[in-house]
Computed example of a mutant assay.
Amino acid sequence: KTKSKKTIPPQSHEDTKKDFGLSSSFKSLCDLVPWCHYFPTALLLLALPAVSGCTPDKSETTTRGRLEVLIAESIAPPMVEQVEQFVNIYSKNGAQLSYSLMSSDDAIKHLISDTARFIVTTRPLTAAERERVPVIQDYNLNGILVAYDGIAVIVHHKNPMEEISTSEMTKVLSGEITRWEQLSRAKGMKGTIDLLYQDSSDVSSFVAGRLLHGKPVRKDVRRTRSSLETLRSLVERPLSLGLVGTSWIDSARVPAKSLKVAETRQTADTTFRVAPEAFGKYYSTHPAHIYRSYYPLKRAIYIYSYGPVGSIASGFGTFVANKDGQRLFLARNVVPATQPIRLKAPQ
């Protein structure tokens, strides 16, 4: 079920900025991201196929036409900004983009049912899902990993805690740990943990595979419908703990503290296995830690398109993967994935 849908008119994008806290001005790349020392200006352009909600119009080009982008809600802030900036640049050419927010699973269902041509997800398509994509002459399915972010463990801004381990998070989620003083680094925090949990979302899917490992989530969770609701609920409840995509923390503009997380057990999940030198150590969601696979709750962001080459979807896909789109990811502390990055040595 679609959670939100918005069409961006050619000239005005104020509603989008208000909803997601987006900025219309950008500093230089190095000013925005001190940890990024090297960011090549040259980037291989991607010839992604067309992805409009219907068959591309004959007059459509890479910068002219209509396109609906289905975005996984937990990665919405930087991807909405990608849509906004593309329209800002190419509206004079006739670019008209809209977006809808939903879970990755729902976006993939739309792609498979031939009701979407461009989706943004936080998981790759399975082999079975690829086989179910309809066969249409001159249409091709293309996907690319465009960035990395993480799932942040968040608490009330006055909570004295600073760190938590993955094994403790599993116990909190499953109900084995229900009180703050049961945690090894509670720092005097006491009371029942008020767990905020977003059902049927990319966050809950990530938690199920990465932390719960088949265990059910505890029954007394306080269920939320979006990342923004999770963050706003957190502010009102001093004993609460929640999980959101890292890009939402700054975008929501609410006071919240993100805990440092340590991997303290061997896991069967090898998708983004924590670097050996980081095992047992606590790391923040800083982009450098995500890039190095030091932060344990790392995940990937994918774009998928289905259609012929040469439409506006091809142009938008190129924009996201090119230096302009990758710079927008960096500005949101999301790690770009289409090019090498060199980190600065500590000063």
Rank of each mutant, 00 (worst) to 15 (best):
Q182I: 03
S293G: 02
R185S: 14
S167E: 09
A76Q: 04
P77W: 03
R223I: 12
G325E: 08
V33F: 06
F279R: 07
V261R: 06
S91W: 10
E73Y: 12
P134I: 12
Y139I: 08
P34C: 10
V334F: 01
K58L: 15
T115P: 03
S205M: 03
V33K: 02
G317V: 05
S52L: 01
E162K: 12
S258W: 05
Y304Q: 07
E263L: 07
D220K: 01
L231C: 04
I89N: 04
Q339L: 15
E181R: 01
D57L: 14
Q82R: 02
F329Y: 15
S52E: 10
E277D: 12
P216K: 08
W180E: 09
K18V: 06
A337Y: 12
D106E: 15
K215G: 01
T61P: 06
V172P: 03
L330D: 01
S28R: 08
T41M: 09
K5V: 13
P216F: 08
F319C: 05
E236C: 03
K219V: 07
L259V: 14
A186Y: 01
I151K: 02
A275T: 11
S233R: 07
A107R: 02
S205P: 00
S227E: 15
Q339I: 10
K171R: 11
I136F: 09
Q96I: 10
E60L: 00
T63G: 00
R265L: 12
L234P: 05
V155R: 00
K92A: 13
L45W: 01
T166G: 06
I75G: 08
V335N: 10
F20H: 07
Q82T: 01
T170M: 08
V320L: 09
E14W: 13
S233P: 00
V87R: 00
Y283G: 09
Q11L: 13
Y302D: 04
A95M: 08
V133G: 10
P255F: 08
P216C: 09
C36E: 06
Y295C: 04
R273P: 02
A147Y: 03
I151M: 11
Q82K: 00
I301N: 12
V217F: 05
V207H: 00
G65C: 03
A47R: 10
P216A: 08
P10M: 12
K257A: 12
P216M: 06
P216N: 06
P10T: 14
P160V: 08
M189Q: 15
K344H: 14
